[in-house]
Lab assay of single mutants.
Amino acid sequence: LQLFIKTLTGKTSTVEMEPSDTIENLKAKIQDKEGIPPDQQRLIFAGKQLEDGRTLSDYNIQKESTLHLVL
């Protein structure tokens, strides 16, 4: 599924993920695209901070969801 990652600067990146992927996997993919180390990334979806060990489906993240990346 395609996700949009929006940064505080207003920049939006697109990443392709599976519902079974963990937040950790997602942060690794963001690191590949943006060069931001996972330990500096905080991802927010629906007002919640996402935890590394959980999966996208745990948070009911659907295709074309927008996640907010806070550093």
Rank of each mutant, 00 (worst) to 15 (best):
L1A: 04
L1P: 03
L1C: 05
L1T: 04
L1W: 10
L1K: 04
Q2V: 15
Q2G: 04
Q2D: 04
Q2I: 15
L3Q: 02
L3H: 01
L3I: 13
L3C: 02
F4M: 07
F4S: 06
F4W: 10
F4P: 02
F4A: 04
F4E: 04
F4C: 05
I5T: 01
I5S: 00
I5F: 05
I5R: 00
I5D: 02
I5G: 00
K6D: 04
K6Y: 08
K6A: 07
K6C: 09
K6H: 10
K6M: 12
K6N: 05
T7L: 15
T7R: 12
T7E: 07
L8K: 11
L8I: 12
L8T: 13
L8C: 14
L8E: 14
T9I: 07
T9G: 13
T9Y: 13
T9L: 10
T9C: 13
T9W: 14
T9Q: 10
G10C: 05
G10P: 02
G10I: 03
G10A: 03
G10Y: 04
K11Y: 12
K11F: 11
K11H: 12
K11V: 10
K11W: 13
T12P: 05
T12N: 06
T12Q: 07
T12G: 06
T12M: 12
S13D: 05
S13R: 09
S13M: 15
S13A: 12
T14Q: 10
T14G: 05
T14F: 11
T14C: 08
T14D: 04
T14H: 08
T14I: 14
V15P: 00
V15S: 00
V15H: 05
E16I: 13
E16S: 12
E16G: 07
E16F: 15
E16W: 15
E16Y: 15
M17C: 11
M17F: 11
M17I: 11
M17R: 00
E18G: 08
E18I: 10
E18C: 09
P19I: 09
P19S: 11
P19A: 12
P19W: 10
S20D: 12
S20A: 08
S20P: 03
S20I: 05
S20W: 15
S20T: 12
S20Y: 13
S20G: 12
D21W: 06
D21Y: 04
D21H: 05
D21N: 06
D21M: 07
T22D: 03
T22H: 04
T22I: 04
T22G: 03
T22A: 03
I23F: 02
I23K: 01
I23W: 02
I23L: 05
I23E: 00
I23Q: 00
E24I: 10
E24T: 08
E24A: 15
N25S: 13
N25G: 09
N25Y: 13
N25D: 13
N25F: 12
L26N: 01
L26C: 01
L26V: 06
L26F: 03
L26R: 00
K27Q: 02
K27A: 02
K27D: 00
K27S: 00
K27R: 06
K27C: 03
A28W: 11
A28H: 12
A28N: 10
K29L: 10
K29C: 05
K29H: 07
K29E: 04
K29V: 10
K29T: 06
I30C: 01
Q31R: 13
Q31T: 09
Q31N: 09
Q31W: 15
D32N: 10
D32T: 10
D32G: 09
D32E: 14
D32P: 02
K33G: 06
K33R: 11
K33Y: 08
K33M: 15
K33D: 06
K33L: 15
K33P: 02
E34D: 09
E34G: 05
E34N: 11
G35F: 04
G35T: 02
G35Y: 03
G35C: 04
G35D: 05
I36Y: 14
I36Q: 03
I36A: 04
I36H: 11
I36K: 03
I36M: 04
P37L: 06
P37G: 05
P37E: 08
P38C: 08
P38A: 15
P38Q: 13
P38W: 12
P38N: 05
D39K: 11
D39Q: 12
D39V: 08
D39I: 09
Q40K: 09
Q40H: 11
Q40I: 11
Q41F: 15
Q41D: 01
Q41G: 03
Q41S: 04
Q41E: 01
R42K: 14
R42H: 13
R42P: 00
R42N: 11
R42V: 15
R42T: 15
R42Q: 12
R42M: 14
L43W: 06
L43D: 01
L43H: 00
I44Q: 06
I44K: 04
I44Y: 15
I44N: 05
F45K: 02
F45A: 03
F45W: 10
A46G: 13
A46W: 10
A46R: 14
A46P: 01
A46N: 15
G47P: 01
G47A: 04
G47F: 05
G47C: 05
G47R: 03
G47D: 06
K48P: 00
K48I: 14
Q49C: 10
Q49T: 14
Q49F: 14
Q49E: 15
L50P: 01
L50H: 00
L50D: 01
E51A: 08
E51S: 07
E51D: 09
E51G: 04
E51N: 06
D52L: 06
D52C: 04
D52E: 08
G53M: 07
G53D: 12
G53Y: 11
G53R: 09
R54Y: 13
R54I: 05
R54A: 08
T55M: 10
T55S: 09
T55F: 08
T55Q: 08
T55P: 06
T55G: 03
T55K: 12
L56I: 10
L56Y: 01
L56F: 07
L56M: 05
S57Q: 13
S57T: 08
S57D: 08
S57M: 12
D58E: 11
D58S: 14
D58H: 12
Y59Q: 03
Y59E: 02
Y59T: 01
N60W: 04
N60Q: 07
N60G: 14
I61C: 01
I61Q: 01
I61T: 02
I61A: 02
Q62C: 05
Q62H: 10
Q62W: 08
Q62N: 09
Q62A: 10
K63N: 15
K63P: 15
K63Q: 14
K63A: 15
K63T: 15
E64N: 15
E64I: 05
E64F: 15
E64Q: 12
E64G: 15
E64W: 15
E64K: 10
E64R: 09
S65W: 04
S65I: 05
S65L: 04
S65P: 03
S65N: 07
T66L: 11
T66K: 04
T66G: 02
T66A: 05
T66F: 07
T66H: 13
T66C: 06
L67Y: 03
L67I: 15
L67N: 01
L67V: 13
L67G: 01
H68Y: 15
H68D: 07
H68E: 11
H68W: 15
H68I: 15
H68K: 07
H68F: 15
H68Q: 10
L69P: 01
L69S: 00
L69C: 02
L69Q: 02
L69K: 00
V70H: 10
V70C: 07
V70S: 09
V70F: 14
V70K: 06
L71E: 07
L71G: 06
L71M: 10
L71W: 12
L71S: 08
